Simulated assay, not measured.
Amino acid sequence: MARNTLEAWIPEEWETSKVVQAIQQISAVESLSAPIPMGSDTKHVPRTAGMGVDVVDKGGAYGEDTSLNDEVLLTAKKLGKAARIAEEDIDDSVADVLAAKMLGWGKSYAKFLDNACIAVTAAPGTGVPFTSLYSLLHTTDATLGYTADTNITVAATAGAPTYDEFNTAAGLIEVGDYFDPASTYAIASPAFRKYLRGVKDTTGEPIFLKGTDGTPDTIFNVPIRWSLGARTSPTASAAPGGRPIMAFVNPELMLLGIRSGPESVFIDGRDGLSALTDESILKMRARRGWAYGHPNGAAILVG
């Protein structure tokens, strides 16, 4: 028999929840993306290649725009985990076990989401919920006029990019129609920090500046959002082990579909079949969709 358990799921409060605060602090995708509310599992979001402009003489006819109009499809995927907790741990522990589990899930979810949206190398399938930015830039799209790997720069020496390689990657996004200096960010693995501190331009000036008093770190005056999920991985992971990447992005093109969550449900061990084990179950989930608006609006440096 079908069951409706919607009422059992308790959403995290965005203003006060430590789980949500941790996600916002750790996940560049959650904090920077344009949020797209989703009322169903799929949603079509319009995408345009822009619109031209002409000089129109007095009494003259307006020229008609021929720019491509199409759309991207957001498909909500469920990202979750369950924890089985013994009654003794809940009843006897001074620490709040449930709160600790929820916070731990939130931090893992933040890294997992960033990895899934930015750095996974494979196309959507088992273990790959979305077309990541890396996968998007690694694929030819003739309709959009993009050739595979055009906007991907790979460091000649793994883990130690040079000034020219950082400069090349940053320059790729600056020549596109989607470049906006006021809305450009770099999402990068913290593994780059060590090397960035030693990279200088031809005048001896460092390209990396450490932020102070609440201002972010910058590279070429572009704000950096550090993300532990910004490493390549064949499938989505909260602890990816591949090469670090730095992605130069326009947040307006980062489309994050929000279907529900983060939310949790607690299944008491004293109810139903679980009563045989004296264990309760805590489930956490968030349902998200993701797409990057246009491949010519981003660039990646693989460290």
Rank of each mutant, 00 (worst) to 15 (best):
A2H: 13
G241H: 03
E71R: 14
V94E: 14
S67V: 03
D278H: 08
S260Q: 08
G80L: 05
D268Q: 07
T212A: 15
K101T: 05
W14F: 15
A95F: 10
L133Q: 04
A286Y: 00
W226T: 00
P216S: 14
G106D: 08
K18W: 00
A2K: 09
I152H: 04
R270G: 15
S189N: 11
Q25N: 13
P206S: 04
V20N: 05
L228H: 08
D114R: 00
A49N: 08
D217Q: 10
T5C: 09
T215M: 11
I23D: 02
T203F: 10
K111A: 12
V199L: 03
L256F: 06
R47G: 06
F166S: 04
I36R: 05
S67Y: 08
A236C: 04
D92Y: 12
Y292V: 06
P262G: 12
G272P: 02
G204D: 06
A186S: 12
R243A: 13
A291H: 09
L172K: 15
A148K: 08
K77F: 08
R259Q: 12
T215H: 04
R231W: 01
W105E: 03
S227D: 10
A158S: 12
H138N: 15
A299W: 02
T126Y: 05
I281V: 15
D65T: 07
T212S: 15
S274W: 06
S237T: 03
I10A: 10
G106P: 03
E30Q: 13
D141Y: 09
D278N: 09
P11E: 02
G145R: 10
A34T: 14
D213E: 13
R197I: 06
T277A: 14
A188S: 14
L209G: 06
G242Y: 08
N115H: 04
T42P: 07
M1F: 02
I224T: 04
D201I: 05
S237N: 10
G63P: 08
Y109G: 07
K111R: 14
E88T: 11
L113T: 01
A247L: 10
T139F: 07
L228P: 03
V154G: 00
T126C: 09
G50F: 12
P37H: 10
S17P: 04
P35N: 10
V120D: 02
V128P: 09
G297C: 10
V249I: 14
T42G: 13
S108Y: 01
M246V: 07
A170K: 07
S237Y: 00
S132P: 09
S93N: 15
T140D: 07
R193F: 04
A247K: 01
P295F: 06
V154N: 04
T153N: 02
A158V: 03
G106R: 01
A123W: 11
L136G: 02
Q25W: 01
L172H: 08
E279G: 04
G229D: 03
G106W: 00
